[in-house]
Design a binder for these strands. Sequence first.
DNA 1: GTCTATATCCAGATAGAC
DNA 2: GTCTATCTGGATATAGAC
Lengths: 196, 196
Amino acid sequence: MKQTVTPEPIDTRILNSALDLFVERGYHNVSVHDVQRQANVSIGSIYNHFGGKEGIAKALYYHVLNEMEVLVNSVAEKNLGAIESCNQLILQLFEQTESRRNIIAFALHAKHREFLPEEPPICSAVPFKAMRDIVQKGMAQGEIRPSDPWVAAATVFGGAIRMIHLRLDGVIEQPLPTFYEALLESTWQGMGVNQE
Amino acid sequence: MKQTVTPEPIDTRILNSALDLFVERGYHNVSVHDVQRQANVSIGSIYNHFGGKEGIAKALYYHVLNEMEVLVNSVAEKNLGAIESCNQLILQLFEQTESRRNIIAFALHAKHREFLPEEPPICSAVPFKAMRDIVQKGMAQGEIRPSDPWVAAATVFGGAIRMIHLRLDGVIEQPLPTFYEALLESTWQGMGVNQE
DNA sequence: GTCTATATCCAGATAGAC
DNA sequence: GTCTATCTGGATATAGAC
């Protein structure tokens, strides 16, 4: 068994550095030189591998989108009911907001239109559509109360996503999984007390 | 009565132009020259009035924050119950997302940290806190089911804010007020069908 | 493929006439 | 207070040695 530590490949180092910097400061406040320094590579290598700053962003975009797909698939393939699937998704998102903050931040909190104007809005991409489809299916099967598709998806996931944003902005100071149980209750049961 | 059309004051023209451009392209993709052209003023005037690009952004930030405060106050001073206040807030936000898109976009959809790093996150500002306080008060008075403050606020407003984001990103194609009634029902009643 | 050194461009900001 | 012309820094990107 090899004992020597294999250093991360150069692409990975560049992408990881860029992810950290982009999330921390925002794409436009990061120069290629910043990425170069943090990744301990030369400018030349960056242009060789990614063709430029926007190339890095695009690679990151698809990398992060893929991570989101993995997350959603990991829940989908359990073949749980719709509600339980949504709960698992929210739990995963909450946990990964703490453990892999920058991935979640880049996926859910970055304004890609401002630096990747060609790409479609990330919420129209596959994993996000899959989340809405889970809700939709739950409605079709009577497990979730029927409603407009957008309203239903926003009601189920909107609270969680809102809390993720507030957490990433530092407004919420406790780790999100703390709120998991309470959030589920509110989401499915609603906030109203007297409905007469 | 004066018949001549009073031209907008120069500050207003600059701020309006900047708001449009910042929302459309993102702060960092707009140059001072762009603002200057759109507002039909000279660079010199801009520096005279706002001291620079960041000065414009800061003035806009407070202007928009003030607009949000007006919106929240307009609901608060009606002294409705907590639930009805929240509903009115959501309705106002939905309507203004259509009628004054850029104000709402700059308030709820811009990443101020990326160009005004000194300012606190907008969600910690007065009008947003007031929204959370309305929910809190509703819980204290038994009108809203008690829950964690963050969870409650995110549940009540998260769905609406999520839909505003999707609308601003062009993912939702119908005007938001269309969804108002359905959203309220989901929010207060919850999405679960079988709660046994 | 990786590096350093350099070219080029453009944005933010200023100077100074009017 | 408003304007035009200009300066300057810093960013992206390239050239060319190794």
